[in-house]
Structure formats: structure tokens, C-alpha cells
Design a protein around this nucleic acid. Structure first.
Lengths: 334, 334
DNA sequence: TTGTAGGCGTTATCAC
DNA sequence: GTGATAACGCCTACAA
């Protein structure tokens, strides 16, 4: 069933049908009704491929979500999709797992679909090198800093990770903690190293020593990763009184592991997280954490992208505010 | 940049370029290399719209996810996308929030894109009536039963919710609980009413009375919903010794609320959940729950859909096994 | 082995 | 207001 069939059945030309279906004004009411009736009768709709082939301007924005398990990213995704709905664009979503390479995927999609732009929800600037340099459409990385990529097309919106981790670490120190363990990602990840830096400078400015080999455990950003790392950490360094975890998921995993080993949180050991996931407010104990404000991240991210797309604004790297959540997972010690 | 430009630059005809790009055998190696080199140099790829316009067979499957916040669904989504990648189909994803109408959205997409089929991750059979009846392509609802819809195109894959909730409730009863509260959805939702039915029949067969008005609290399937309902429940019926929550999220919310009110779980009150989310194994206490096996749900769901698409198999409603997780959130009482 | 040309379903620009 | 007709980018007989 094509526009042609409709035209034939209607006894008119295809142009007329097209005009009706595209709400062009220059069609007689009479004809319009007639066409509409037949269209309705067959439940006919225009072929999207043909339209887009013709109307050579795709208005699609591709959203690439890294790690389906992150509640933060899913909240963002929903918000952004909702916003785009009200704009003259469409959005398509690709969900990747931790091991996929978002840069490669984006590059493939770029050539296949020629979207207007990309939004990366999570994902690492590290993966946005190499092939991705060929992608010459505006993109924005949300929740991570991407200035290190040095691309003319890639913007980013994130919180000040350094300051945030500084704040958390400072809070631990202020509460009397001196022997602090860290559960974080490998330091070749920009985000992990930035958070580590912030943590470290808080300790340094408080005159607290930190022994990397003894007190830093590398883990995956997940419940399981946090739990495993917590066990390794406590066994090689049983004196620690607090743990700085680089994500809420890790923090929760760590809490679980500590409880399993007979330590109570925060009575026996304090834990701080990072992200401010919904669950962190329902977990027992409520997590002390850094909340990334979804609304802020989502709307700023989209704004930056649209500004690049519509006004050819140069790429930029925005910092949005975060919130320190006091929670209940840190105990004051002497 | 089109096939034509490549041909010109290459000094050959567009047919040759097309053949190279489609891996046709009848091209001289010489020519092939030459074309490939130029294609590579420009990073050129064929226009998807034009191909599909021509090859009139769209191979797209649309996945509609209801409620971005569910970890269960997101795990499923990732698995299904991965599976489809290895098949001669593409998949596109739409994420809806709790308030959207998945039936309406699917209907719109059906007419706009004419996909091969739909996969609903979560969502309610209730919403798949009405307009959705016009959607004449195979679809499958995953994690809920859809036989009640009575559509010839809509299959479903789910666990036996009745048996699962029976199992949970039975476990509570076996552990000495007689005064049990329920935190569930409104009973006009098929899933909630089925789970309630299973719960009830376990109580009945154990000779335990259940007073709906006094002991059933309607809540949203979320942490917050569970927490609010738990507070209402305990204030109107402080004698309960256990709570049957219809989702892990609700159960976690309830645990949080109980702790806030000074009740310890499971010492003072027992809680069972439903879903078997990853967090349920990390929460403190570990949740007693029903695990829906993602792998099973994902692969069965896709199989059912593909069987309908490829072999015109009639729609069917499959039951996949669940797992009862004992956890630590139920205490044996006398 | 390679080039040519018609057509996929639509839109838009012409005439009429 | 309406009807032809030429693109859009690609594939594929068919011809050379």
C-alpha cells in the first residue's frame, strides 16, 4: 500500500495525496475528505524511509547509555527523552554494558545514521578518542569531564568531581578519621583519578598521610566490585576506620561485605559513597554521599548539545553543582 | 557524499561501487581495492534509508521499556539487545515512565515505522487493549502475563506469579507468621491481583485469616511507595509480624521505614520482597525474595517473538521458572 | 568484469 | 487546486 494506491483509489494524483497527508493548505476540502477517508479505511501511513530519503535532513539525536544498571543514568535518560519529545527532534537510545566501547559504537552509528548529535550518558572520555575523532557532529558527555579529549565537537557536563571528593574526604577527616581506605576505579580512568586527587588533597591539607599501596583497592563500579574490594582492603589493612568509595554501588557492596565480616556500619567502620542514587537514601544505614543532580545534568547537557547543533556554539565543558548528603554511614570518632 | 561521488573519484560506475560495498563476488580485485581505498579515505557508508527503501524489508524490532528505574528490566534490556545484535535484525529502544501508556506509544510507532515486532519489557496487559489491537505484528510482553488481552499477536513470557507469591507467603507462614501485612499495587492491575491471589491461597490453605481492609496497603512499585505504605500499615495495624511486599523496591522502602520507626528487620518485623534485584542481595538484611531469572526471561521472550516473526507461530504465553531466595529478612517466630 | 538504467515511496517544483 | 515529473541514494537486472 503506497501513496500511489491511495491516489488511484481516490481518482486523483499522488501529489494531492501527499499534500493532504502533509497538511498542506492548498487542497480543496472536498478532495481532502475523500483522501482522508480512504487513508483511514486502509490505516495507511507514509513510508518513513522514503520520506527521510527525500527530506534528507534527519533530526535524530542518539543517546548512548553506558551501563544499564546505573540508576543515575536511567533517571537522566528518562528526563532527557522527555525533553526531546517536546522539541522538533527524535531521540534513539542505545544501551551499552560496561565492557562495550562507546566510542566505537558511536562511530559506527555516525556513519550509518548520520544523526544530528550524540549524548553520552556515562562513559569515559578515554573511549572517545581514536575512531571517534572522525565523528564530526556535536556531542555531549554527561556526568564526566571530557576536556581532556580535546575534540572540537565533544562537550561535557559534569559536577566538579575534585571538589566533591574533597568535600567527602574532608568530612571524614573532620569526623576524626585518619586511617581511611579507598575503593575506586583504576587510575587510568579520568573520573577515578580526579576523585582520588580530590580525596588526597583533602587529606594532605589536613596533614593526614595516605599510603596508596596499603589503602587503595581497585574495583569495578558495582555492588560486587565494592564488596570484593572491601574484603581485600580490610584484610590487608585492618586498622582503617573509614572507607571512601567512588560510587554508591561500591559503597553498598562494601557495607554488605563489612556486615558479613561482622563489622557494623558506621559503628565499627564508616563508609562514604558517591552519586546520590535513590537507593542510597533507603539503604540501611543511609549513605553519606555526593548527589549529582539529575535534573541539572540532564537539562544542561541537552542545552549544550542543542546550542552546538542549532547555533554552532563551540563545544564547552560545564560544571553543575552537587549536593553533599550527610547520611548516617559516618561515625564521629576521636 | 554518495555512491556516485565515490564512483566518480574512482573512475568507475556506481554499480561497481555498490557491488564492492555489498560484497558481491564479481568484481576484479584490482577494482575492489581501489574502491575500498577511496571509501576508507572518506569514511563513507551507504545511506540506510535508501537501502531500506529499496530492500523494502525493514528488520527492526522495537523494545519498549516501562519504567526506567527497574534494575530487572534494565538487565533484561541489555541481554536482549546483545542477542539481537547477532541476528539479522536491528533493535530500537523506547523508555517510558510509569505514567506513559505503552499501548498508545506502540501503536504510534507501529504506523510510523512498521517494525517487525515489539518487545515490552514490563508494562501492563491492561494498556495493551484498545488502540493496540490495530497493531498487527508479533509482540511479546516480558515479565507479565498477557493471555487476558486475547490478542492473536501478543505473546507473553513470565514467571508463575501466583505460585511464586504462594511460595513466599507459605514461607512466612511456616516461620510462624500469622499477622501479615501486604504492600502491593492496586488490584485492578493484573500482576498485583495475581500475586495477591497466590499470597491469599497460601494463607487460606494454612488456615490463616487475612483482613484486606486492615492489612493491605496499596503503593507504587518504588522505594518511596513501599516506605509510605509501610508507615500507613504499621500505624493502622501495629500487630503485624511480617510484611509481604510485591516488589523488592517496595520491600526495601518498607525496611527503611521500619528502621526509621525503630523496628529492626527481621528481629521486630519480617519482610519478603519480589523480583530478586541485584540490590536485594546487598541490602542489609539480605532480602527474602523471588528471583525472576533474567537470562531465562530474555531468551525465552526473544525466542517466542522470533518464532512468531519467522515461522508465523501463533502467539503463546510461556511460564519460566523462578527461584525462591531465602535471604535474611524473615525471622522464625513461635 | 563493468556500465547503464529503471524503480523503491515520497516530496517539491513545475505547469496547467 | 490539481496533475505530472524530477529528484533523494541505492540495488540489480540487463546489456556491453
Amino acid at each position: 500500500m503506497t501513496i500511489k494506491d491511495i491516489a488511484k483509489e481516490c481518482g486523483c494524483a499522488i501529489g494531492t495525496v501527499s499534500r493532504v497527508l502533509n497538511n498542506h493548505p492548498d487542497v480543496s476540502d472536498n478532495m481532502r475528505q475523500k483522501v482522508l477517508a480512504i487513508v483511514e479505511k486502509h490505516g495507511f501511513v507514509l513510508n518513513t524511509n522514503a520520506r527521510q530519503l527525500k527530506a534528507q535532513d534527519r533530526k535524530n539525536i542518539v543517546i548512548i547509555v553506558k551501563g544499564a544498571s546505573s540508576t543515575l543514568l536511567n533517571g537522566l535518560l528518562e528526563k532527557i527523552q522527555k525533553k526531546i519529545e517536546n522539541l522538533p527532534y527524535t531521540a534513539s537510545v542505545v544501551v551499552l554494558d560496561e565492557n562495550d566501547n562507546e566510542g566505537l559504537v558511536a562511530t559506527r552509528i555516525y556513519f550509518e545514521q548520520k544523526p544530528l548529535g550524540f549524548i553520552f550518558l556515562g562513559g569515559s572520555p578515554k573511549k572517545l578518542h581514536g575512531d571517534f575523532a572522525k565523528v564530526h557532529v556535536p556531542s555531549v558527555l554527561i556526568s564526566n569531564q571530557a576536556s581532556s579529549v580535546g575534540s572540537d565537537f565533544l562537550s561535557s557536563v559534569s559536577i566538579d568531581n575534585m571538589k566533591a571528593s574533597f568535600t567527602s574526604a574532608e568530612f571524614l577527616v573532620e569526623n576524626g578519621h585518619r586511617k581511611i581506605g579507598v575503593i575506586g576505579g583504576a587510575l587510568d580512568s579520568e573520573i577515578s583519578s580526579t576523585r582520588y586527587e580530590g580525596f588526597l588533597s583533602a587529606l594532605i591539607s589536613a596533614g593526614v598521610h595516605f599510603d596508596f599501596d596499603k589503602s587503595y583497592e581497585i574495583a569495578k563500579y558495582s555492588f560486587e566490585g565494592g564488596a570484593l574490594a572491601a574484603k581485600r582492603l580490610i584484610s590487608k589493612n585492618p586498622e582503617i576506620t573509614a572507607v571512601f568509595a567512588m560510587s554508591d554501588a561500591m559503597a553498598i557492596g562494601a557495607c554488605r561485605a563489612f556486615q558479613d565480616l561482622g563489622y557494623k556500619v558506621p559503628q565499627d567502620i564508616s563508609v562514604v559513597g558517591f552519586d546520590g542514587l535513590t537507593i542510597s537514601d533507603y539503604f540501611c544505614p543511609r549513605l553519606t554521599t555526593i548527589r549529582q543532580i539529575e535534573e541539572e545534568l540532564a537539562s544542561e547537557g541537552l542545552n549544550v548539545l542543542l546550542d552546538s547543533i542549532e547555533n554552532k556554539a563551540p563545544c564547552c565543558h560545564k560544571i553543575v553543582p552537587f549536593e553533599f548528603i550527610k547520611g548516617e554511614s559516618v561515625k564521629k570518632i576521636d
